[in-house]
């Protein structure tokens, strides 16, 4: 187990550095001077450009710039952004919280709605509810989030006025983006839950338990649920990392002030330190969660050997 963890952490570090190196290389070959302008229609004074290039080491070769980034990253320093010249960690801090709020809300919805729907569908197989869940989950997967977002905005924000059209960070404005972000994952969780439940229900040990005359409730909670939850937990763990991708577009639709939205804006402004910062966070969260999920999985299911 210890060896396995060490090896996995090693792989994790490789992935993190590989991903940021790729990003660095891409940003490096981008046309346009990252400190050449600030937006608007005026070019920056060449003297200022020169000063900033020196200050941020932009005149150095790619390898050296990347080296500086890594050295600072180890110290927890992501550098200064190019417009306001503030610490990237300070700029992204509140945005990271906002994204976490959105992602957590989405996960809660995934778990509650997804697992409940899957459970009902599996327990009452082929009933009206089963068909309904199946139909809805299939439909949900076919709706891109910007279509769902458009429907929500026009119906619930503009027509009915239940929610603000544009997020202001309040709980009320969290609802539409959270539901949008959660819908597809909730559908997938429901499908997964239904599938594993059916499989477990057919398993020999469940049949044995029932044959032994154990009460239905005991069988359900002690055997079926516990074993069905494993793959669902795995999936949710992995999807949390993937939520950053979904958050990118959800935040853009609803103007939610998170890191996904910050990324889109930073890309427009070519504010490289912010782009690198967001991707660093995103990739780090993704690999760490993957590792945790694998470990958790191994602990929940002793049949899996870690080698």
């Amino acid at each position: 187990m210890g060896k396995y963890v060490i090896r996995r952490i090693g792989q994790m570090v490789i992935v993190l550095f590989g991903a940021t190196l790729i990003l660095f290389a891409c940003l490096f070959v981008l046309p346009g001077d990252p400190v050449g302008s600030l937006g608007g229609d005026k070019a920056r004074d060449p003297a200022v450009v020169q000063e900033l290039r020196e200050r941020y080491g932009l005149d150095k070769p790619l390898v050296e710039q990347y080296g500086n980034y890594v050295t600072n990253l180890v110290k927890g320093d992501l550098g200064e952004d190019y417009t306001q010249r503030r610490q990237v960690t300070e700029v992204l801090g509140p945005k990271l919280q906002n994204t976490a709020k959105l992602a957590l809300a989405a996960i809660v919805l995934d778990v509650v709605i997804g697992m409940l729907a899957g459970l009902i569908a599996a327990l009452f197989r082929y009933s009206f509810w089963d068909v309904l869940v199946t139909l809805l989950t299939t439909l949900a997967i076919g709706f891109p989030s910007f279509v769902i977002g458009s429907i929500f905005q026009s119906q619930f924000a503009v027509k009915l006025g239940w929610f603000p059209l544009i997020s202001d960070g309040s709980f009320n404005s969290l609802i539409m983006p959270a539901v949008t972000l959660a819908i597809i994952d909730a559908a997938l969780v429901a499908r997964l839950m239904r599938g594993t439940m059916l499989e477990v229900l057919r398993a020999d040990y469940v049949k044995t338990a029932v044959a032994k005359g154990l009460p239905r409730r005991t069988v359900l909670f002690k055997h079926v649920l516990r074993n069905s939850v494993i793959p669902v937990v795995t999936y949710i763990g992995i999807s949390f990392g993937g939520l950053l991708g979904g958050a990118l577009i959800t935040e853009a639709i609803f103007n939610w002030d998170g890191i996904g939205f910050a990324l889109v804006t930073a890309i427009q402004q070519q504010n490289n330190p912010i782009i690198v910062g967001v991707v660093t966070y995103g990739v780090a969260v993704f690999v760490v969660l993957n590792l945790l999920v694998d470990l958790l999985y191994a602990m929940l299911d002793p049949r899996i050997r870690l080698s």
Binding site: T134, R191, L192, Y235, G246
Partner: peptide, 22 residues
């Protein structure tokens, strides 16, 4: 969009079954 890709990730590893109405 990553949603469908994600669905495939763990889906394939854990045999994600679906009910069809046919």
């Amino acid at each position: 969009m990553t949603e469908l890709a994600k669905s495939q990730g763990p889906g394939a590893a854990t045999a994600e079954p679906a009910a069809a109405t046919g």
